[in-house]
Structures are given as C-alpha cells and as structure tokens.
C-alpha cells in the first residue's frame, strides 16, 4: 500500500476498468495499480431548464408592466380583422382577431389574467389543502376521517360539472373562476400534505419536541411545516400549469372571463370558428399556453429534483 501513486491511466465511462497493467514505481520497486479515472458527476443543468426560467420571467415581467408598454388597447380595433402575423406593423406583428384587435396586446394583457388565475387559484388551494392535510395527518382519528371524506367527495365530483354549477350560481368573473379552480386544487394538496405530515410526525425529532414541552401548534407550524414546504413548493408550478390549462378550457367553453377582458383560453375560443382560414388566431395563444405550461412543468421538475438532493445528500 504505497502512498505514491502512478499517473492515472485512461479509463472509459460507466463502471469502467482502468488499464489494469501494473505499474512499477521508482521509489520502492513496489507494484501498484493505476488510479482509475472516475467519470465526473456534473450537476445536470439542461438548456431546457434555463429556457423555462427565462420564459417564465419574461412572461411575468411583460404581464406586470403591460399597461406601461406602448401597446394598443386590447378592446379597440387597430386594423382590419383577421390579419395574419408578421405583417410589418408593431401592433399587428401577431396579427389581429375577429374584430381587428391587436393579438399582441391581447396576448400580453391575457397573460395577466391567465397567470393571475393560475397563481392565485393554486396558491389559495395549496394553502387550504395544506392546512387541512396537516390537521388530518397529525391528529388522525375522527377529524382525519372527516377531512378524507370531504376531499374524496371533491375528487369524485367531475370538475367540469363543479365549475358549471358554480358559474351558474355565481356570475362569471375572475373571482368566481379562481374560487372554482382553487376548490379543485384543495384535495390534491390535502392528500400530499397529509401523507407527508404522517411520515414526518413519526420522526424522533417530533417526539423530542414533545418531550421539550412543545404544544401542538408549535409542532405543526415550527417542526412539521418547514419540512413540508419544499416538497409542496416544488409541486406548485405543476399545479399552476394545470390551472392555466383549466382556465383555457373553461374560457373555451364560454364559462371563463367575460369579454372584452382577454385571456389565452378565451382567445382560442374566439378564433376557433375561423381556424381553417385564419389559424393564427388559435395558434398564437395556443403557443403561449404551451410554452408557459411547459416551462412551469420544467421548473417544477427542477425544483423537486433539487429538493430531493438536499434531502438525501
């Protein structure tokens, strides 16, 4: 077992075997093997993840400063209806819709609605769902049975039917849409939070906290919750993506945001009758939905990956 090592020999990838020929060192005439070269483990940072975050930042910034941008008003025609995209003028760079309104402007203002609905609905749902899930998972017993019954019932209800019912009772608006969508998110987070709470509660540090005289409130909020957040947070973008798609589908069915406020789903609905002759009216918002949802899913995967690593490393 000599300390002086020979120069590393060449090795292939995977569980490679370095050149096994023994090397004689000058020092003691002892036989030692070559140092194997281990393929370096790099942190996997794919281009897609960079793209996803860039796209999300771009969309969010555009939506946030939409009213400061030199855009045409989204409710007033700027040109002839149904002009195709890439036609010179800035306002009509993405074409115009049925009424001659700028699609660019409607996309940017629509992003506001779509993102807002997606974010607020999933956050609100996550908040309520997590609280219910933690209570169910920590106390178990009767309260757990009740909460599980409620979430199972909510899950068994066809979502579209639920939203239809809601929009028939309440007048369709951004607010009712958010309430309806949030309701759909609650059970998912309840289940996720409940399962995680049960597994964290059985850890010794919870028992240690009890043994130090901690009350339930402290255990739930200070001991368990911080450990749930990374997992739930990583799931949030994925739910948000689903909410954006849901809003799109609802608007498509005419149960979404009332006109003239634009939303991406609503724009697709508006263009659907003319899709054969003027596909851009459907394609442009569809591409935006696709890219945003894709980016959100990528971000969610990336966050979850990172969370797993910090947990196990």
């Amino acid at each position: 077992m000599s300390a002086d090592l020979s120069k590393p020999a060449a090795a292939g990838g995977g569980a490679a075997v370095a050149e096994k020929q023994a090397v004689t060192t000058a020092a003691g005439g002892e036989v030692t093997s070559a140092e194997p070269r281990v393929p370096t483990v790099r942190k996997q940072r794919s281009v897609l993840v960079y793209f996803a975050y860039t796209w999300l930042v771009l969309i969010i910034v555009l939506a946030a400063i939409a009213s400061l941008l030199p855009l045409a008003k989204y409710s007033i025609p700027v040109d002839a209806p149904r002009i195709g995209p890439f036609g010179g003028d800035f306002d009509t760079v993405l074409g115009t819709d049925n009424q001659g309104r700028s699609i660019l402007s409607r996309i940017v203002f629509g992003a506001r609605v779509s993102l807002l609905v997606g974010a607020v609905a999933s956050l609100a749902g996550a908040l309520v769902g997590t609280a219910l899930g933690m209570i169910a998972g920590y106390f178990l017993g009767r309260i757990d049975a009740l909460i599980r019954l409620l979430t199972d019932a909510l899950l068994a209800f066809p979502p579209l039917l639920l939203l239809l019912a809601l929009s028939s009772i309440l007048t369709p608006s951004v607010k009712t849409l958010i309430i309806g969508l949030a309701l759909l998110v609650v059970p998912t987070f309840t289940r996720l939070a409940r399962a995680n709470t049960i597994s964290w509660s059985s850890r010794d540090f919870i028992m240690a906290a009890r043994n130090m005289g901690a009350r339930r409130r402290r255990i739930l909020l200070r001991e368990i919750l911080p450990n749930l957040l990374p997992g739930l947070g990583a799931y949030l973008p994925i739910v948000m993506a689903a909410m954006i798609v849901a809003e799109g589908s609802l608007s498509f069915l005419g149960m979404g945001i009332p006109p003239p406020t634009p939303s991406w789903g609503g724009m697709i609905a508006d263009g659907k009758d003319a899709v054969a002759d003027h596909p851009h009216m459907v394609m442009v918002p569809a591409v935006f939905i696709f890219l945003t949802v894709f980016a959100l899913n990528q971000a969610g995967d990336h966050l979850r990956h990172r969370f797993d690593r910090t947990l196990h490393d």
């Binding site: 569980a15 075997v17 370095a18 096994k20 093997s33 070559a34 070269r37 281990v38």
Partner: peptide, 9 residues
C-alpha cells in the same frame, strides 16, 4: 454503482 471505476486485479 454507475459512475464508478476500478483498477487493479
């Protein structure tokens, strides 16, 4: 495991 290498006999 993957990403490992050995030498010797």
């Amino acid at each position: 495991p993957p990403r490992s290498a050995c030498s010797g006999e």
